[in-house]
Computed example of a mutant assay.
Amino acid sequence: MREFGTIPPCLRIGLAFAKDTLRDCLAARMADPQTPHHHNERTCPVWRKPMEEFFKCNVDAGFGSDKRSFGIGMVIRDSNGSFIVSRTNFHDGAALVKEAEALAIHEALSWIKELGYDKVIVETDSKISEDEVHSEEPYFTEFGLTISACRALIRNQSSLKFGNVRRQANRAAHTLVKTALQQACFGTTYVTPISIHSIIMDDCNYPPED
C-alpha cells in the first residue's frame, strides 16, 4: 500500500517537466524582442535544422537521484537533421547545477575542436550558462575558470555560434544525459542510439532555421 502523500516516480518526472516548461514559457514572455541576441531560438519550442554547411551540437547536463553524480550528453547533427555522432560522459562527485552545465559546454566545445568541425551551432538549455559565456565578467572560481575556457574556445573558432534553446528543443541531449547516468561511463557512437532514434526522426519534421 502506498503511503499517503508519496508521489510516484513517474508523476515526479512529469511534474518536473511541467515545471521546466512553465519556466521556459515565462522566460520567453519576459524576453525583450528589441534586445539583440547571439544565436538564440528560445521562443521556438522545437529543434531546428541548422543552415546549410553548418552542423548543430546540442548539449545538456543532469544529476543522478542522489545528487552526488552528474551526466553529460551531446549530439551532433547536420543541416538535414541527420545524426552524425553523440557522446556521453559521467562524473562521480557533487557539483552545483551551473558548474555541471558549464563543464558540459566546455566538453562539447573541446569535442568539436577535436573533431575538426568549424561551422557549428552549439545549443544548451541553460540560460544562465549562455549569459555567463557571453558576458565579459572576470571570474576567479572553478566555475569561472570553466566559463573563461569556454569563451576562449569560442573565440578561436570564428564560425562557431553559441546560444540557448528551450528544454523541448534539447530533448536528444537531455535523453543522452539519462543514458550517461544509467551506464555511469564515457561513450562515443557514430550510430544513432536507440534512446534518441525517435527524437532524431521527429526533429527532422520541423523546418530549418531562417
Rank of each mutant, 00 (worst) to 15 (best):
Q34T: 07
N205T: 05
R171A: 14
A95P: 05
Y139W: 09
D60L: 10
P33A: 04
K113T: 09
M74G: 05
N170G: 12
Y139P: 01
K49N: 15
R68N: 04
H197R: 14
T124H: 01
G187K: 13
A61D: 10
R155S: 09
D131M: 04
L115D: 05
I121E: 04
R87P: 02
E3D: 11
L11H: 11
S129E: 02
T192K: 10
C185V: 06
M51S: 11
T6R: 10
A27T: 00
G73I: 04
A104G: 13
I121C: 03
A28C: 07
I200R: 12
K67E: 12
F63W: 07
D92N: 15
P207C: 11
V85P: 02
S82W: 06
E142C: 07
K67V: 02
I128F: 02
P36K: 07
G5V: 08
I128N: 14
W111T: 09
P50L: 06
G93P: 06
C10L: 07
D125C: 09
E137A: 00
G73Y: 05
R155E: 13
A152K: 09
T124C: 04
K178P: 00
K178A: 07
F70K: 06
I76R: 06
G71A: 08
E114M: 12
F140I: 05
C57V: 05
I13L: 14
D78K: 09
R155H: 09
M74H: 11
E137R: 00
E114P: 03
A172N: 14
F4K: 15
F162C: 01
L26V: 10
N205M: 07
I105K: 00
S135N: 11
S129I: 01
I72T: 01
